[in-house]
């Protein structure tokens, strides 16, 4: 069994497992008919779509399977960020003191899922919205800009979150 074929099988199993998990969450029933039908459906869809669901170039299992403890922790961290940034935004709405600017920087995360999560986290944190994500290059609109230096801006915008996400997908 060569490497490519084994990677196909692993992706197929992961996709089917994920689909079955979603099926269980959505139907929320443990009747045998529902369980069997869900298994057949998820295996069939997994066989058809595993090449789309997990791309060929993500050739490492570490890039896909997250660390569950850090993932749950990160969920709470993100909720805290959400409220903190809303209070900052509230002040900006009533005082009107903003200095908008577009900054570009690169990320060192390698996994596609981790980059997507990083882009979404940047949108949630204070005064920044991701405008474009192209491989590892991010374009961010920053409402409270106070620096002109690209590296300093990247550190201010994504520094903490990139370290957290680096723990989830090492």
């Amino acid at each position: 069994m060569n490497v490519e074929r084994r990677w196909h099988v692993v992706r197929f199993l992961l996709t089917s497992f994920f689909l079955y998990l979603v099926w269980l969450v959505f139907t929320a029933s443990l009747e045998p008919y529902s369980l069997i039908f869900g298994a057949i459906g998820s295996v069939g869809i997994g066989a058809l779509t595993h090449t789309v669901f997990i791309a060929e170039h993500q050739a490492n299992l570490r890039y896909i399977v997250p660390n569950p403890l850090h993932l749950v922790l990160y969920l709470f961290i993100i909720i805290a960020f959400l409220y903190q940034s809303s209070v900052m935004m509230l002040r900006a709405v009533f005082t009107g003191e903003v200095s908008p600017r577009i900054v570009h920087f690169r990320t060192r995360l390698r996994s596609d899922v981790a980059r997507m999560i990083l882009a979404n986290s940047i949108t949630i944190t204070p005064g920044t919205i991701t405008l474009d994500l192209n491989d590892d290059h991010l374009t961010v609109h920053w409402l409270f800009c106070d620096t002109n230096h690209a590296k300093a801006a990247g550190e201010r915008v994504k520094g903490r979150m990139e370290r957290f996400i680096g723990n989830i997908w090492p």
């Binding site: 935004m89 900006a92 709405v93 009107g96 903003v98 908008p100 949108t123 005064g127 919205i129 609109h141």
Partner: peptide, 22 residues
């Protein structure tokens, strides 16, 4: 505050910040 910000800022990006985040 989000609704106020959506009418107060002059630019779609800033409106997106106020409306989207709040």
């Amino acid at each position: 505050a989000g609704m106020i910000g959506m009418f107060r800022f002059p630019d779609p990006y800033a409106r997106m910040h106020a409306g989207g985040l709040l």
